[in-house]
């Protein structure tokens, strides 16, 4: 191989290389400081924390009309259809204890259309959309004697014949607050079962849409066995019973099915909201940092949806005879995981 001629500007080349290195040293040493990274986009399941979207002086996103002082809007149930939130709410008249189900929609989950009546003589709605587009609505009888099921093509008006899913066996039993889950070709209904003298539990029945529905047992009972930091026994936050289930069949990032349950835990005269989950829908494990909502206003009827990258949690509160309605918390971390 023929040797290359001696470069005429060799010293310049060497000088440029050295200058480049020196410049690199100076530039790099000048870049001191910087943030500690590694904590962005951490997985968020939509369990905590919840930020209330409304101010303290107007704490609700939906309230009954001012000219209906005996009406309470409560036990909201939300689902997402075509990118909009459809909210079903129980409207109960405390004067005669009658109830009906209202329906409203929202593009952002915060500002809703004026509610209209979706189903009369019904309470505590829970809706779910089947694969064929049918909207199923489980509801409780206003007197707590039974839980029914009805369907609708558009989800706005349920005018079909209701089927009975659960009926109380004795006079001292009440069933309430159903939560409807569509699991393949079966409908699963979680509900509150309260018997006089016992703490209310969350029970479950399941069956095909045409019925019959068979009991699957109790999914969650009152909390027990709680320990303080020093190891001593202490009352659980939900030791007075569990009510108002809201169950969603979700998928984890690993592709596993998980039954997500928000519920109301009772302690003394009031309640707070907690979370539990289950792989099989029957055996639920409590969230280690319950309660997830404890505003000390007896929160009732949680309902959670995922709208885009945000998780929304609706519930109802009655702070006083004149301050009550539907509340909303938002968990808008930018890395949501569970989806449904």
């Amino acid at each position: 191989m023929t040797p290359l001629p001696h470069p005429p500007s060799a010293s310049l080349v060497t000088g440029a290389l050295i200058a480049g290195v020196v410049a690199g040293v100076v530039a790099s040493c000048a870049a001191l400081g910087g943030d500690d990274g590694g904590g962005a986009h951490l997985p968020n399941r939509g369990v905590v924390p919840w930020t209330r979207v409304t101010p303290n002086d107007a704490p609700f996103i939906l309230v009954p009309p001012a000219n209906a002082p005996s009406t309470r809007w409560r036990e909201p149930n939300a689902l997402v259809r075509d990118g909009a939130v459809h909210l079903y709410v129980e409207a109960r008249d405390t004067a005669d204890d009658s109830a009906r189900v209202l329906w409203a929609t929202s593009e952002d989950g915060v500002s809703f259309t004026a509610p209209s009546v979706a189903l009369a003589d019904a309470a505590a709605p829970s809706a779910a959309i089947a694969a064929d587009g049918t909207t199923w609505l489980a509801f409780a009888a206003p007197d707590g004697a039974a839980i029914g099921l009805v369907s609708s093509a558009d989800g706005a008006v349920f005018d079909g014949v209701a089927a009975e899913v659960v009926a109380t066996a004795t006079g001292d039993e009440v069933v309430a607050s159903p939560s409807l889950v569509i699991d393949g070709d079966r409908l699963v209904v979680y509900f509150t079962r309260a018997t006089t003298g016992s703490a209310p539990v969350i029970a479950r029945v399941s069956g095909p849409p045409s019925g019959p529905f068979t009991p699957d047992g109790v999914a969650l009972e009152a909390g027990a066995g709680c320990l303080a930091s020093d190891g001593a026994a202490e009352p659980c936050w939900d030791d007075g019973g569990v009510t108002s289930p809201d169950v969603r069949l979700a998928t984890t990032p690993a592709g596993r099915r998980v039954f997500r349950l928000f519920y109301r835990g009772v302690h003394g005269a009031t309640g707070a909201l907690g979370f539990a989950a289950s792989w099989d829908g029957l055996t639920f494990s409590r969230f280690p940092f319950n309660p997830v909502i404890d505003e000390r206003f007896d929160e009732v009827g949680p309902s959670s949806v995922r709208l885009g990258d945000r998780y929304l949690l609706y519930w109802s509160e009655e702070r006083s005879a004149s301050a009550h309605g539907i509340a909303l918390g938002v968990d808008d971390s930018d890395a949501p995981t569970d989806r449904w």
Binding site: P253, A254, V258, A277, W279, S285
Partner: peptide, 16 residues
């Protein structure tokens, strides 16, 4: 790599 949790109510949950 997929990480799965024993507890369905784990605060972090499954992730990849």
């Amino acid at each position: 790599r997929t990480y799965t949790k024993n507890d369905p109510a784990d605060p972090v949950g499954d992730y990849v």
